[in-house]
């Protein structure tokens, strides 16, 4: 992400925070699907889902971002399909709610990475929208270690 120019971001909510991913990394947004568990996989991996005949591994958003577990019975939310490893793989990422798709000036984003309760290596920048803070995620840094095979 360059400092200058317009950046398109997908905003979503996981736990108590609003997060953002670069729209160029987002392949598709699906409703939440019940995944098939993969025995032995890390806890953050929810399992496999079927996306029109292709098997996609899904990462549980709240676990990966160390957010509190959503109350039992709330099965709403979305699965965002993200490209990782320079577009070579597609991974599902569960979020509580997709809130917006915004275009922001890259220069207006704060390069700050230290945030309470958030692993700094996952934070690309911090932005603000309507007085609300959002964390722009480094999705590769977040997902690649979880999925390493």
């Amino acid at each position: 992400m360059s400092d200058a120019g317009i950046v398109r971001l997908l905003l979503f909510r996981v736990g108590g925070l609003t997060w953002a991913a670069e729209a160029t990394m987002v392949r598709e947004i699906l409703p939440r699907l019940e995944p098939t568990r993969i025995p032995g996989a890390p806890r953050a991996v929810a399992g496999l889902i079927n996306v029109r005949g292709t098997l996609v591994t899904v990462v549980e958003g709240w676990r990966a971002l160390r957010q509190p577990e959503p109350p039992a019975g709330t099965q709403s939310g979305s699965t965002v399909l993200l490209q990782v490893s320079r577009g070579r793989k597609v991974v599902g990422f569960t979020v509580d709610e997709v809130t917006d798709l915004v275009s922001v000036d890259g220069a207006a984003l704060d390069r700050r990475q230290a945030l309470p309760g958030v692993d700094p290596s996952l934070v690309q920048a911090v932005g603000r929208r309507a007085g609300q803070l959002f964390v722009v995620l480094n999705t590769d840094a977040l997902l690649t270690p979880i999925l390493a095979s």
Partner: peptide, 23 residues
């Protein structure tokens, strides 16, 4: 085939999609 994440038990040769669409 599916991308088996690290730690996946070495007892799977792949996955399939069942009639109800669930893997």
């Amino acid at each position: 085939s599916f991308d088996a994440p690290q730690g996946t038990l070495p007892v799977f040769s792949g996955a399939t999609i069942m009639g109800d669409g669930i893997p």
